[in-house]
Nucleic acid binder design. Sequence first.
DNA 1: ATGTCCGCGCGACGCGGA
Length: 257
Amino acid sequence: MKIATYNVNSVHARLPVLLRWLEQAQPDVACLQELKTPGEKFPLEAIEAAGYGAIWHGQKSWNGVAILVRGSTPQEVQRGLPGDPEDLHSRYIEALVNGIRVGCLYLPNGNPAPGPKFDYKLRWFERFTIRAAELIATDTPVVLTGDYNVIPTDMDAYKPERWVDDALFKPESRAAYQRLLAQGWTDALRSLHPTETIYTYWDYFRGAFERNAGIRIDHFLISPKLAGSLTAAGVDRDVRGWEKTSDHAPTWIELAL
DNA sequence: ATGTCCGCGCGACGCGGA
């Protein structure tokens, strides 16, 4: 079973690239972030024509997450991150797919830090950590994937010193990520490639991709039950070089079930 | 500090967000 995550940075602007990548990569499950569209404008027809069913949580202008499943419509089990009825951002959706719980998240960016946006990021992270604890305590295998907006360690940035004041790399953000992992989750890409340089995002400025000036912020956290089934993980780096592409590249894992 | 891409509300450019 191949599960992928892709921050598309507008599902409308990215539709040709998204469809081309789905055709090429053939993931069984694809978690999307930053749809940047209200729910009623989600391009379901084009995605169904590509062979995928979908659930999504949209929002005008910003955020938005979706889960695509090849050949069927995912069974939605949660829409929106629980724990704060006043938080209206569409940043979390969860589905049951072939007995696996798949959580798709778009964690807040948090810049500038310090400030109210950084405070929101850390509060959201705490709520997500509570949800993760609930899920890991169940018998169901779980995959939590998406844009975590966290650079976990120095080796996950081309020049870590350039990121020290950034919300993605602040000690509070990294500590929150480590607290999450400490529940028992495996960072799938890092576990299979412990010393390799892996980036999933290159910004649009200064030819960052051409210089490989990237960071690793899209992650797969898998529950202990799944750790032994992890057979492969990687980044579809070539997609980042396509015309009209996202600033993120699709990232994926394979599970032998 | 710079730079680019996206959606939006305008009114074909500037702004917020990333």
